[in-house]
Amino acid sequence: MIAIGERINGQFNDVRRAIAEKDGGPIQDLARRQTDAGAAYLDINVGTAAEDPLDAMRWLVETAQAACETPLCLDSQKPEVIRAGLEVCDTSRGVLLNSSPLSKKSDPAVLDTYASMAREAGGSLICLTMDTEGVPQTIERRVEIAAELVTRAMDLGLEPDRLFIDPIILPVNVPGAQGQPGLILQAIEQIALLSDPPPHITMGLSNLSQGAAERSLINRTFLAMAVSHGCDSAIVDVLDDALVDAVAAAEMIMNMQIYSDSFLKAYRGQAGRQR
């Protein structure tokens, strides 16, 4: 599992406060703890409250990468914010850009922009199965968009193994959306067949349980199910021990990790090395 640590995000109060006060301590603490917990990448998102998002992104990148060796996942819907992060990011450890849809009404060339930045940085790119029509409601359309993403990214110089497809998971308690997680599992299975080697498949897992009770349980149950359908990455709270244990067990049950009596420990020892 390529776990992307979600915690350095301006939507969390501690991070928003740290950004506002330019207090590096909490950021570096989160960077280290997520690294120790096995994060393969650390997501960096300035949130919506930052006064100067470009400056905040530069500061977050410099602060986080000084605390650990883990590569970063620069997360913004604004290309200029990503670009600001890339200016100061140590891309020699690898970098992941998060994220671009296939196309967008306000910016039809959005994928080209993100793919070019990822290619030039020698990194990888998360792409959302979304186009000008928004998030599709059917499996077929999600897979169709994923196929277009794979093809288009290859044209732009990104091989499928540098591509992370995010089928977009919506909160399970939104009226009418409860059928979506089941459909997404079927979509994942088909996306994994699009190329060989297949693109990575990732998801912003915490979104699934947004506003729901028993969030950790919902998240880890779905992640274990997604692993069994071919999902190999997720943007998650790696500090949630029960979640990491569930992934370790799921990968072992799916014969992706060789069983040993110490399989939980073995998984934690290796996590983070798999990118």
Binding site: I258, Y259, S260, D261, S262, K265, A266
Partner: peptide, 11 residues
């Protein structure tokens, strides 16, 4: 036994 092999390495 591949599982025991892994376990010995861990121990």
């Amino acid at each position: 036994d591949i599982n025991i092999a892994k376990q010995v390495n861990i121990l």
